[in-house]
Write a protein that binds this DNA or RNA. Structure first.
Length: 521
RNA sequence: GGCCCCGUCGUCUAGUCAGGUCUAGGACACGGCCCUUUCAAGGCCGCGACACGGGUUCAAAUCCCGUCGGGGUCACCA
């Protein structure tokens, strides 16, 4: 039975790199008919951020990465919060002590720090001197009489090797001599990550520890602990971390200002910020940006697109397959095909996946996705009035592939603006209406034709304009641009005749009248 | 700095284990052309990489050695 886990610490929001690791765990479990466990690594209580956990669980649900055991769903290995497993951890510490692979250490942090600095100064590798190690009860009593308290440290051997057999990297050897006597328990009995992690993994029956590469260097410590505790080792698989756009550095949520200098990243961020602003979402830069999964949901991305993109960040099936349904991912996933080198996050490619997935949706599905944005931006009431559906469907249809994320609908809200409140793109107005001598007279004349037009379908409007052009002996370009600016205020938009049809006769005439007035004043 | 990992187009990657079919394939991005009432989309074409140096071999992106480069980690964080 395969059991994998993802163990986020609730110290920040769900990070795109974390999700990629979680996805690999989920996929591996699903592929082998096993279980995927979610465990909250909250041992460092001081840093805990309550809303972060909510956001993390919400993110997993949105992405469709369901967990078989963990917070909210429970399971046979409760509790799934590391902070609530301290009994097990304490027992493990005692066992380590009893087995002689750990010792009580009465040093003060500053004393160890002094040794460390001295070693650095002398360009020597630091290793704790064990000066304040209590090997006997007498030692302990003496140190305690001095008012010292004890942490528990690993007693790393001076010789020998620890071999980590990694499913992705092969076997990696570490010399014990190069390993530190890491602290595994604080004076108050609380334990540190390396101990908690391996103990919980064992007790939860985790068979495959699939985690980010940055944990590779503390794996020997965990292996040492596991051996001391007599555990059977889980299989390890260290996946490369997700790197920054255009660099090899690990993607971090703290370096946002730097990422914003990347053109593609900034473009994605701007898109999101613009949508957030229009729906009145108050955002904080550190929780709403393309590094955080929540961002994508808010802006109107498809979870499937994100997951598909993330799948290919460090994994591939072959030289050409890029699109996978969930079932196909599960069927084909294999740790053997996970790359060793870090992959940088490419916002442009993510956007490309989103585009593909979006265009595959039916008009009905798009309407459903897009409607909440119009409601939040105040263009459509909640619940939506009956006539909304027809109009919105027409807009979405006419917009076609221009809508790449659901929030993009907010680029096309001119249809909802009151006719006398339409704002105009100044440059376009100047170029298409003020400057050309024939713009106003032509538009005035065509306005007259439109006023007499009964059939307001796009097809008929096109025919009407064509015959007008013939009658006037003018080309498309001489009238169409002025007409567009007059009715939408913008230089660009979708099909002119669809636009007119959606707007309706009354609005079109009102907007043209207003434009003509403005152009002549 | 010690230890560990990694190194194919700008980016994600196929190919490396089992050397030849690789004058290195695909995707995203980029450039050009076509289509076109604008924008998007679409079609076609193009640009573009085996980090470097030695070796082994008839033959090396692939094997060996070295160099260089990048990164991770060295907490009483996770």
């Amino acid at each position: 039975m395969v059991r994998t886990r993802f163990a986020p610490s609730p110290t920040g929001y769900l990070h795109i790199g974390g999700v990629r690791t979680a996805l690999f765990n989920w996929l591996f479990a699903r592929k082998h008919g096993g279980q995927f466990v979610l465990r909250i690594d909250d041992t460092d209580a001081q840093r805990e951020v309550a809303p972060a956990l909510e956001a993390i669980l919400h993110g997993f649900r949105w992405l469709g990465l369901d967990w078989d055991e963990g917070p909210e769903v429970g399971g046979p290995h409760e509790p799934y919060y590391q902070s609530q497993r301290s009994e097990s951890h304490k027992q493990a510490v005692q066992k380590l002590l009893a087995a002689g692979v750990a010792y009580k250490d009465y040093s003060k942090p500053e004393e160890v720090q002094a040794e460390r600095t001295a070693a650095e100064r002398e360009k020597r590798n630091f290793r704790y001197s064990r000066t304040w190690a209590a090997w006997t009860d007498e030692d302990a009593a003496r140190f305690e009489a001095e008012g010292r308290t004890a942490v528990v440290r690993l007693k790393m051997p001076e010789e020998g090797k620890i071999v980590v057999d990694d499913l992705i990297r092969g076997s990696v050897e570490f010399d014990c001599a190069g390993e530190q006597d890491s602290v595994v328990a604080r004076a108050d009995g609380s334990v540190l990550y390396n101990l908690a992690s391996i103990v919980d993994d064992h007790e939860m029956g985790i068979t495959h520890v699939i985690r980010s590469e940055e944990h590779l260097s503390n794996t020997p410590r965990q292996v040492f602990i596991a051996q001391g505790l007599g555990y059977e080792l889980p299989k390890f698989a260290h996946v490369p971390y997700v790197a920054e756009p255009g660099s090899r550095n690990k993607l971090s949520k703290r370096k946002l200002p730097q990422y914003l200098k990347n053109k593609e990243f900034a473009k994605l961020n701007d898109l999101g910020q613009a949508i957030a602003a229009r729906i009145g979402l108050t955002t904080a830069a550190d929780t709403f940006n393309p590094v955080i999964v929540d961002f994508y949901e808010q802006v109107g991305f498809l979870a499937d697109a994100i997951v598909n993109y993330l799948l290919l960040l460090g994994w591939s099936l072959d030289d050409h397959t890029e699109e996978f349904t969930r079932e196909e991912m599960i069927e084909n996933f294999s740790l053997k095909r996970v790359n060793k080198a870090p992959a940088s996050f490419d916002p442009a490619k993510l956007l490309a996946f989103q585009d593909r997935y979006m265009q595959r949706l039916s008009v009905k599905q798009k309407v459903a996705m897009v409607l909440p944005y119009l409601q939040q931006a105040g263009f459509v009431a909640t619940p939506p009035p009956c006539e909304t559906s027809y109009k919105l469907k027409a807009i979405v249809e006419a917009a076609g592939e221009r809508i790449k994320v659901a929030g993009d609908i907010l680029d096309y809200t001119d249809f909802y603006t009151a006719d006398d409140e339409l704002s105009y793109d100044e440059k376009a107005f100047e170029k298409r209406l003020t400057k050309p001598d024939d713009a106003v007279p032509l538009l005035t004349k065509f306005r007259g034709v439109l006023a007499d037009t009964e059939d307001w379908s796009a097809a008929n409007l096109e025919a009407t304009l064509k015959s007008f052009m013939e009658a006037e002996g003018i080309g498309f370009g001489q009238i169409i641009h002025a007409l567009r600016v007059a009715t939408t205020g913008k230089a660009v938009g979708f099909g002119m005749f669809e636009t007119l049809e959606i707007l309706g006769k009354e609005s079109c005439l009102a907007r043209i009248d207003r434009t003509l007035e403005l152009a002549q004043s």
